[in-house]
Each structure stands twice: as C-alpha cells, then as structure tokens.
Write a protein that binds this DNA or RNA. Structure first.
Length: 271
DNA sequence: CAATCAACCTGGGTGC
DNA sequence: TGCACCCAGGTTGATT
C-alpha cells in the first residue's frame, strides 16, 4: 500500500473534502485498530470540526478544532474514503467517522494492520514524529543524504526504506529509484560512490514526484479518498516485473529478497 | 550494531 | 473443485 506519494495524494484529497466538517459519530467493527479505544476517540471527537490534514512520512494527521489530533497509518491495505452517508458499504470497511453534510470518512482495510490513534496534543505528535527521518522531498539536501548512506553498512535498499533514516519510502519507490540510479539494491550503503549517491538522490526525487503526479500506485489495494485508482503502476520499470524484459537492455528483471522484502532489479543495468 | 524471523490479518494467485 | 503453498506496498519486537 501507501507510501509517501499515496499518503500525500490522500492528504490533498481530504483537504478538499472534509475540512470544516463536524464529527457526528464514530463506529467500528474492528476496535483493535483504534487507540486508545473507539469509545474514548468518539467521546473526544464528537462535535469537533476538522481543521487541517497533514502528512509526515507515511503518517497522516487530522487536526480538530478542540486540539485533538488523529494519527492514521494505512500500513499495507488501508484506505481512507470519503463517501456520502447513503453510499453502499465499502469492501473491508471497518471504521466510520460520520460528518456533517451527510458525509462519512471511512477506513477500509483488508489485512487490518492499519490503525487510528488519538493524540492529546501537538506535543505528543512531535514526540512520535521525532523518530522519523527527514522528508525526502522537503528537508533533505544532498549532503545529508550522502551522510546517511555513508553511515551504514546495510544494503542500500534497506537503508532507503528505514523510516528512522528517511521517511515515506517503501518497497515500490525504493525499487524504482534504485533502478533509475543503476544501483544494485544489495550494495552496502556506505560503498555507494559520491557519483552514484548523487544519481540516487535525484532518482529518488524523480520516482516520488512521478508517484504524486500519477496520484499513487494502485498495484493491488491502493485507492485515493474518492475510491479511485492511481496510475503510477502503469509506469513501473522494475516493481513486480519478474522475468519481464528490462526497458533499458535485453536482460530480464529478476526478483530476489533483500531485508526480507521482495526486491526487483535488472542484473545488467544495476551494478 | 546488524540480520533474521515471527507476528499482526485476509486475501489472491498458482500448481498439483 | 479442492487444497496446499507462496506472495503481499509496513512496522515492531524477540532472538541470534
């Protein structure tokens, strides 16, 4: 599911769809996904208005008029959908936040790994966000990126996906960026040369910006807040293309496992 | 410090 | 059709 571009797309959607709406009700058939508890969250949010929606890494934050903040993580298969009250129930729908104007913010999640967490205030939010690495498209200059790579001997792909080191990059964009940069995902990060690091820095930005431009990658489960698919999957160069021909050479894309995750690369183009 | 693995869940796809 | 098995965009915590 959702990595930086997908969560960013949802954030932008929500800003158009639910700002200034008032919370009228909260219901769920999967209470474990709501913290500290659905009763508590309902009690605090009832009557409050949605004032802002932000994103940091893969975390979505919904700010309310009473100071409460709802932190949302979609994990692998979570969806945040804005529907009309009368619309038919969504597949895998587990939480419904009823809003004024006969709207609903629905949380659908096949695997039920995603969660909603109510925070007391900004301070609690800051504490959680302080564990995240820099935003690749905002506060990451090349010098810092190079430093990040130089300070780890782990596989470069594992480092890219480590949220404490860089925030928002998941399996799809890590694979795509490494292909664009011509770097083997298993290479120890600290052995990536200055020139390669520069290429990777720009490739990462390119892949993430393309992901946002195409409104995310809907390989299997991802949908935006209106329930529509993104289109970035149509532009995948390596992700999920096992045994298919590389777009840049006659070789075939190979699937291996790096850091316990499916990894796709071209043995000829990526060294 | 780094690597591996299980766990949290529910499918879809494939091969026999 | 049935069934076993592998795979899945994420993160955490235990173990080695």
């Amino acid at each position: 599911m959702p990595e930086l571009p997908e969560v960013e797309t949802i954030k932008r959607d929500l800003r158009h769809l639910i700002l200034n709406r008032q919370v009228l009700d909260l219901s769920t058939d999967s209470p474990r996904q709501i913290r500290p508890s659905s009763e508590r969250v309902k009690k605090v949010l009832l009557g409050a208005k949605i004032k802002d929606v932000k994103r940091r890494g893969k975390l979505l934050q919904i700010f309310f008029s009473n100071g409460a903040i709802l932190l949302v993580h979609l994990k692998l298969t979570g969806r945040l959908l804005v529907r009309n009250k009368k619309d038919k129930e969504d597949k895998w729908q587990h939480v419904v936040l009823s809003l004024s104007g006969d709207k609903e913010l629905r949380f659908a999640d096949l695997r039920k790994f995603g969660w909603w967490k109510l925070l007391k205030d900004e301070k609690e939010l800051e504490k959680i966000l302080s564990d995240l690495g820099p935003e690749p498209l905002d506060d990451l200059d090349f010098a810092e990126f190079k430093k990040i790579l130089s300070s780890s001997r782990r596989a470069v792909k594992v480092v890219l996906m480590d949220q404490k080191v860089l925030s928002g990059i998941g399996n799809i964009y890590a694979n795509e960026a490494l292909f664009l940069a011509g770097i083997d995902p298993r290479r120890p990060a600290n052995e990536v040369s200055l020139e390669e690091a520069e290429k990777l820095y720009h490739s990462l930005e390119k892949a993430l910006r393309a992901g946002i431009k195409y409104r995310g990658a809907s390989d299997q489960y991802y949908l935006d807040a209106l329930g529509k698919k993104g289109a970035y999957q149509e532009h995948f160069l390596v992700y999920g293309r096992t045994n298919k021909k590389c777009f840049h050479c006659p070789d075939k894309i190979r699937r291996i496992v790096v850091g316990g995750r499916g990894t796709f690369y071209c043995p000829t183009c990526q060294k």
